[in-house]
């Protein structure tokens, strides 16, 4: 990667460190979910369907998913600030490739989300979340989380660029939020009684990241969920980055 690209990604990260409200909110929301769900309904974790990892390992993936959602709500804040101040034009007139001007802040958002995911995994491990393949499980979770985060950040930044309003980045979070409740979020598939919910959960991409993570954690799901999840979110990552780059062409410098 050339120096200008690295410099722009570094700049995006420094901006996030100076103004960390979005990732910290995402992290706080995730910890809150973990605490509340485990405290409120953790007692059912002794049922066989939850496996040896108990309810904590079962509910842990939801915290990872919500972390990326919280971070993506702030995606593009650096890009937006640069456009508002006119500094984006200064960067646009530099020899740096123009695509990196859009991709760098998105990558910074994703890297920040990954850093908080690692912190969350460490907290989870401390409190007894099980990782059935050890370090490989952690790497697998990080890979899924990276693709999921990049997907959300790409769409958020793209929408923000098209509307020209920073607040509109939250549209993606709001749109994805109902998908969390139309999946196997709180209970395993075999304990869900409503057939319509089961049918919807099959078509819901969130199911594959949830179950893929559960395969890596307590092994309560099959490996196929992990592989399908990787495929789905690799495709959505490419689509979202393409969407963001196409949206960038609509910027008036």
């Amino acid at each position: 990667m050339n120096t200008a690209n690295i410099l722009l990604i570094e700049r995006g990260l420094v901006k996030l460190i100076k103004n960390p409200s979005a990732p910290i909110m995402g992290f706080g929301m995730s910890l809150f979910f973990l605490l509340v769900y485990n405290a409120g309904i953790g007692g059912i974790g002794s049922m066989e369907a939850f496996g040896a990892g108990g309810y904590l390992s079962f509910v842990f993936p939801i915290t990872i998913i919500s972390l990326a959602m919280g971070s993506s709500a702030g995606a593009g804040q650096t890009l937006n600030a640069d456009m508002q101040s006119g500094y984006f034009k200064r960067l646009y007139l530099s020899p740096a490739p123009r695509w990196i001007l859009v991709v760098a802040p998105m990558l910074a958002d994703t890297i920040s989300s990954m850093a908080f995911t690692i912190l969350l995994i460490a907290i989870g491990a401390t409190f007894g979340v099980s990782f059935q393949f050890g370090l490989l499980s952690v790497l697998g979770i990080l890979l899924l989380s990276f693709l999921w985060s990049l997907t959300l950040c790409g769409f958020s930044a793209g929408i923000m660029l098209r509307t020209g309003q920073y607040q509109s980045a939250a549209i993606v979070t709001n749109a994805v939020f109902p998908l969390l409740f139309l999946s196997t979020t709180f209970l395993p598939r075999e304990l869900i009684t409503a057939k319509w919910l089961l049918a919807i959960s099959w078509g819901n991409p969130v199911t594959y990241i949830l179950e893929g993570n559960r395969f890596l954690l307590a092994g309560t799901s099959s490996a196929s969920f992990f592989y399908i999840g990787l495929l789905i979110f690799s495709i959505t990552s490419v689509v979202s980055v393409t969407f963001a780059l196409r949206s960038a062409k609509k910027i008036k410098v």
């Binding site: 410099l7 600030a81 101040s85 006119g86 200064r90």
Partner: peptide, 20 residues
Amino acid sequence: EIDPTEKVENLLVFQCRLFG
């Protein structure tokens, strides 16, 4: 076309670095 949140020196150095 300046980033109002950055220090003058940092802006100049960063711009120089962008140009190699």
